[in-house]
Design a protein around this nucleic acid. Sequence first.
DNA 1: CAAAGAAAGTAAATATATTGACATAAATTG
DNA 2: CAATTTATGTCAATATATTTACTTTCTTTG
Lengths: 168, 168
Amino acid sequence: MQNGEKTKDQAPRLSNRLFFRLYQCANMLHKTGTRALDAHHITTQQWAVLGALTRPAFEPGVAVGDLAAFLLVSRQNLTGVLTRLEAMDYIERTVDENDNRSRLIRLTTKGRSLWDEDMRPVISDFYDDALRGFSTEDRIHMIHYLDKMLRNFKDIDPEIQTDKKAAE
Amino acid sequence: MQNGEKTKDQAPRLSNRLFFRLYQCANMLHKTGTRALDAHHITTQQWAVLGALTRPAFEPGVAVGDLAAFLLVSRQNLTGVLTRLEAMDYIERTVDENDNRSRLIRLTTKGRSLWDEDMRPVISDFYDDALRGFSTEDRIHMIHYLDKMLRNFKDIDPEIQTDKKAAE
DNA sequence: CAAAGAAAGTAAATATATTGACATAAATTG
DNA sequence: CAATTTATGTCAATATATTTACTTTCTTTG
């Protein structure tokens, strides 16, 4: 009983430590990631946007709202990032012919070149450094945990419908 | 050989997925965390600062630089957060008697009360929700991976000396 | 088909975060 | 001990990120 209580008391400490580590990792991801791409004046958010735009499904152009839902940031946030990326000529905004409200975001040739020639090698090295000592199994386990936590976060967020009933 | 190459080709995809999930989790941590404490007008950063100040080691007061090193954010960033927390009367800044350059940051009575009475229960529920389905073993594994990644990040960051040679 | 409603994107206000620059104070050096 | 260097915190400029509010456009309703 005494031991049981002791174990129970440890639970909050474990959770606290886990989230504090997550918080620290997030800080370092942005800090070291932005620094890695500093020569190209690209931040981790811009990196995330450009990376998303290289996805085959998004290559013909993606709406701001869909991009925001994919990255799990607000639409309003993306506006600023997209404005800066457009000013640097890495992306372009075109009006959706089927819906004049919607803007389709797409990589420009310059953006595609930046990603392929400049960013990809740097990112590859960054991954190697940040995952040093992680076996393939470790990576799979870690992804599993992050996926699981992400589902929980989405359940907490009232704005994101996880489509639990709707078959995907 | 062909199979070996196939496996090798999967490595970048795995790393990419892992970091994208980490990026998404970080976004959701701040989004849902800030919303959970919205009734008390506390953000996740303020949460992190207040939580740090409740640590026994920091209770007598901690310098801004030490706090920044602990949270893995920049000193300059903390200035703003501390100014807001001070304006809300949750923390206080006193001059270190041993070093007139240094300010010692400490929780006020009001801050301690906010943490104990108001924040702690909300945070506890938040942890439960975000870690739903995680066994104690899962949590320990996840912390292990985050710790490992954090060490790698620190190795990447030129400003943080990991004290590899210095015995801790 | 006109009016109300909803959806898509953006602008504004607030709070992080980073680097660069600076003022003050302590530590080191010649 | 005076001069240089270093350390500590803050301010300024830039880039995220969020919520609230608004414009434009599409959809739904009567």
